[in-house]
């Protein structure tokens, strides 16, 4: 198996991981809406995952860039920019005092990211298979 194959295999695993993180976020938000969890615990839990999620995604982007996978990089660039912008603005963490006011937008963001990771998961899978087929020929 060649470099591209390994790269996309890794990407598939990363995308699956990110996918699960987003599912977790969405479950937690709906728990908050149903009062199963209080906003303080929710923010403490989710905030542990915010930076790892952003770093994992950024790492993947850098990997694509270094390996010259331009299309894969360009697909991820908007989200990378969005995350970097949020961190620079200092509002990437969830704020327990404002969480109920901003809950709809947080949920929307998580759903969009979920969709994005799902699509990118299949795209990486496809690229991995293409790479494997190219290797075997």
């Amino acid at each position: 198996m060649g470099g591209a194959g390994w790269l996309f295999l890794f990407a598939v695993l990363m995308a699956a991981g990110l996918l699960f993180t987003m599912v977790f976020f969405i479950i937690m938000f709906s728990d908050l809406e149903c009062d199963y969890i209080n906003p303080i615990d929710l923010c403490n839990k989710l905030n542990q995952f915010v930076l790892p999620e952003h770093i994992a995604h950024a790492f993947l982007c850098v990997l694509f860039l270094l390996c010259g996978q331009w299309i894969a990089f360009l697909i991820n660039a908007p989200l990378l920019g969005f995350n970097v912008n949020k961190i620079r603005g200092g509002n990437h963490m969830y704020d327990a005092t404002e969480i109920f006011r901003s809950l709809p937008s947080h949920k929307k963001e998580s759903f969009i990211k979920l969709g994005f990771y799902l699509l990118s998961f299949f795209y990486y899978l496809y690229r991995m298979i293409v790479a494997l087929i190219a290797d075997s020929e």
Partner: peptide
């Protein structure tokens, strides 16, 4: 749907 004033919103309506 939303609350304004001096307090901490502890759950959806508390």
């Amino acid at each position: 749907s939303s609350f304004h004033g001096n307090f901490f919103v502890r759950s959806t309506d508390l």
